[in-house]
Structures are given as structure tokens and as C-alpha cells.
Amino acid sequence: MIDLASDALLLVGAFFYFAGTVGLVRFPDVYTRLHALAKADNLGLGCVLAGLALQAESLAAALKLLLIWPLVLAASAAVSYAIAHRAEALGVAPWRREEK
């Protein structure tokens, strides 16, 4: 039962990593790509860590895995702001859809 839940979480996590990477490739500019990476990958990481924590050998090891999530979350939120801020300061104009 626990193995099943763990596998499901790992697969869902892999799916979000995949979607985030697809977004990175397909989205048109730096700002939209940051959206894809920050949001999808953090969700993917959360699922992968939860899946691994279910398989951990001790409570402390499981908590250690789960501790990674908020740390990466904080880093990735700050980094995506930093990149967006710098891009704007350099005058990178956001992509806009052409009017039809």
C-alpha cells in the first residue's frame, strides 16, 4: 500500500518535471519560462520528495527529505524573482501575442 502510494507520487512528480521542461522549451520568452520552471518544478519536487519520504528507513530520514522542499522552494522563488527583475532592468520586453 505504501509502496503503491510512493510510486504514484514519484510518477506524478516526474510528470510535473516533464511539464515544466516542456514549458521551458515551448514558452516564448524569459518571463513565461520562469513561470513554467518555478511552479511546475516545485510541485514536481514536492511529489518526488513525498514519494521518497514514504520509503525512508526512519522518521528522521523522512523528515530530512521533506525539509528539502521548503528550502528549494525559498531558493527557487527568490531566484525566479531575481532573474525576472534583472531581465526587466536590461530592458527585455515581455512577449505579447500578436493581434489577429
Binding site: G20, H35, L43, W95
Partner: peptide, 20 residues
């Protein structure tokens, strides 16, 4: 947010209307 952006990325024709 993650689900939404994943759907947008995987849509056959991305339908984004970015703005500031």
C-alpha cells in the same frame, strides 16, 4: 499554479496572454 502551468505547457497550441 503548478497544475495550471503544466496544462498550459502541454496544450497543443499554447494559448498565453502575458501582460505586466
Amino acid at each position: 499554479g503548478g497544475v495550471q502551468v503544466a496544462c498550459m505547457a502541454l496544450r497543443p497550441r499554447p494559448d498565453l496572454v502575458p501582460a505586466l
